[in-house]
Design a protein around this nucleic acid. Sequence first.
DNA 1: TTTTGGGTAATTTGATCATATTTTTATCTA
DNA 2: TAGATAAAAATATGATCAAATTACCCAAAA
Lengths: 219, 219
Amino acid sequence: MPESARKIPIHELTYERLRDMVLFGELEPGQPVTIQGLIVDLGAGMTPVREAIRRLCSQGALELQGNRRICVPKLTLEALDQLAFARLKIEPQLALMACTRLNDTSMISLQEIDQRLDQAIALDDVQGYLMQNYQFHFTLYRAAAAPILLDMAQSLWLRFGPSLRVVCGRYGRGGLPDRHHDVLRAAREGDPAVLAEAIGADLLQGIDQVRLALEEPNA
Amino acid sequence: MPESARKIPIHELTYERLRDMVLFGELEPGQPVTIQGLIVDLGAGMTPVREAIRRLCSQGALELQGNRRICVPKLTLEALDQLAFARLKIEPQLALMACTRLNDTSMISLQEIDQRLDQAIALDDVQGYLMQNYQFHFTLYRAAAAPILLDMAQSLWLRFGPSLRVVCGRYGRGGLPDRHHDVLRAAREGDPAVLAEAIGADLLQGIDQVRLALEEPNA
DNA sequence: TTTTGGGTAATTTGATCATATTTTTATCTA
DNA sequence: TAGATAAAAATATGATCAAATTACCCAAAA
């Protein structure tokens, strides 16, 4: 067994696994999440599962409903407005800070992720699209070396993720302009303000899609 | 025993207790926090303590140091810059949204809190000042009915709290203009933009105080 | 003799699990 | 429909194991 594997505690692995399930749409909004169920599904003990759930609750990825039941929160229009406001303030700033710190390695990473993202779109692979889209944004954001803002962005994505999945699954994403190419171009040219603006435009596109879905009569 | 008391689980009480210890400066930046110690100090079992710690870690109130030790994070200048940016975006917005929703009851609450705050200042009661200052801001923010932005503000205060305590203890807060009266006036007049501006000015004052302390050679 | 360095033992602390208790939900009868 | 009962799930404790830190001792060098 490799050294690195034994170092990571089970509660951490459980957290990461459960977080990804929320982030990439394995759990639908409104879906109940039980401790016992996760113990069986993830093959973990009770303590690690409970700790993972507590962490995700305090990040807004899961929700405690008074009677000690837990579920994936459903996005309301009010919640979406708050998310939109916060994301449009925090994430362009992360992009701005990242811009001057991007080196060749991270630029190549971004381009590779963007290619895989295009592939996922071509194959109608919704989960792949969500994963690569996440990687694209957070590979950029991590370059900003701003852990507090990064944490905030992470929490915002955890609240947004499940709904994005539902929307993508329902409408696909045909016909929408590809904002990531604008982002990549601005990153190559090293213009922080333009890059921040491009990220803002990309976010707005996703937010508007979700808003459209929420405003529909059938939910 | 009243019905309401028995309903709240121990892990929740433990979380609130520990959160307040961070928020109101009972724990200093850099101070180690041990599970065993909290079990003794708070008289709780292991599971509730562990869960409370996990929640606070994911809010940035506590920090895991590689070797599975936990401590109250020390604020760096870089972290302060990120906190300043985020607070100045989120909290004035909460004030703005709260402005039109303030009713007589919450206005009276705010004025009472402000009085207790002045008392605490007069008595050089640092902990009292911190508690009333927190209540003042969050009584206002809660009126915004924006739980996501409120969560974000809560996390930002948890990261900021311990350092504010150190600063207040060291320098007091003599001679600084009282921004809360501006806030109250704007709230009474019901002008959202002015209220948001006043909150921003208040935040900036606290942030600048902490920055001054951090920039000093002796730490 | 005092000090420093290395290494081992003892202690402390964290991680995980098994289990008991309490609460909530579901079911079944009257 | 209401109340009682059974089942399921969450809460909380304590025990056990593993890892890390601290304390301590002895030898070697100044």
